[in-house]
Write a protein that binds this DNA or RNA. Structure first.
Lengths: 217, 217
DNA sequence: CCATGTTTTGAACAGTGTTTAATTTGTAAA
DNA sequence: TTTACAAATTAAACACTGTTCAAAACATGG
């Protein structure tokens, strides 16, 4: 018979349709203006019906959120096989910033916005973020082991590294840098990032590792 | 007669009352749940009447925002007379983080939330933020001049320093550190901050400058 | 006491997320 | 083919937002 399976597939398809529409609106308008009614309009259904597929709006945002983390993870995978841990760390940070600049909307939802927080706490299968953090932490730990970084609690250093790049990106994403003209921001971010890495790895040529390329938005 | 003056004073008093009520609610509930109707309730007026004193809700939030910056500025003033620029820089960062931990709600509104951004752009008399930035920038510039920091574009370094502490605080304020238990966070922040400063000022005893005190929340 | 200008109100508008009873639809069995 | 039942979908409502505006209340100077 296999009708059960088809029904399940159709349900899953509908969920995907909703998510696709949501993401499209999300890119056009940002998540604040991505309303249930607009999503419903886009897929030509009634607002209420969406609640048959998603618990609430945050549940939809969480779906977008997850896709964002897949995107970030894929980008990180392109540099994760760099043998030298300090070089890898430098590249990981660069990639993270690059992601933030290229996908501001995703970044906002993933790391700044707070409406989702509740959903994340309920859904403890939240490995997407964890795995990105683990990649970073492992690299930091390796740097400590090889003596590339002065020894200390690995979590504290990892958190600091993350905080730094997050600070750079989030100030930019939320437009908190009125003192610096917008068009200079990518260069400032790049210079700032390079400067900091040079402080941590004085014996490396950070510029060479990053190919001296400024961030592209 | 002086009635004009009294009227003006009463108007200003009303504005203050609204702001006070707003701030109280803001502390209790955060700015998302600080609604016009709740503010009106608190001062026993009608919601509509508030619009006779403030252009809109963001205008009220901007008032809170300004008070927050006064608070931050006052805290910064307690360390700004430190003669050695690198010590001053270290203490400024510590103070900034301390502010963020002690006044999360203010911090959120001042540096993370985006609803106000529009008002800030309109009101170009927005020196509150500028002056805090200038204090930091001047200190960084002095560090470069005295050779305490390797030379580079002062804005890039300043922005990076700010980004780092902002990253630490904002990840904490928005609860983005699921991988680290909440009760350890102040210690992790402290360790992370000390570690980074040590990287920038290897010849300083950062721990001593900060009196080895962990952040208090 | 009246006229004028300010302050305050109450009701409405358009928008939000969400719930629920009623309706439509699709499918399997009689 | 018709009936029966379950799933999908709708329409309407609810309780909230921020905001506007005509009307009412008030205070004040003449």
């Amino acid at each position: 018979m296999g009708n059960k399976e088809r029904r399940a597939r159709e349900r899953e398809q509908m969920r995907e349709d909703i998510l696709d529409a949501a993401i499209e609106l999300f890119h056009e308008l940002g998540f604040e203006k991505t309303t249930i009614r607009r999503i419903a309009d886009k897929i030509e259904y009634t607002p209420g019906n969406i609640y048959a597929y998603f618990k609430n709006k945050n549940d939809i945002l969480f779906g977008i959120h997850q896709r964002g983390f897949k995107l970030l993870y894929d980008m990180e995978m392109t540099v994760v096989d760099t043998p030298d841990p300090s070089e890898r760390l430098i590249k990981l940070g660069q990639t993270y910033i690059q992601f933030g600049l290229q996908h501001r909307q995703y970044y906002d939802l993933m790391f700044i916005d707070s409406s989702i927080q509740q959903v994340i706490h309920e859904d403890d299968s939240w490995q997407e973020g964890q795995s990105s953090y683990t990649v970073l932490r492992d690299t930091v730990a390796e740097c400590i082991q090889t003596g590339a970084l002065p020894p200390n609690d690995a979590d504290s250093i990892t958190f600091g590294m993350w905080a730094f790049v997050h600070g750079l990106v989030s100030l930019y994403v939320r437009g908190r840098s009125a003192m610096i003209p917008d068009e200079y921001m990518p260069q400032v971010l790049q210079a700032s990032y390079t400067y900091f890495q040079t402080a941590f790895f004085p014996h490396k040529n950070v510029d060479n590792i990053l190919n001296s390329e400024a961030f592209v938005v």
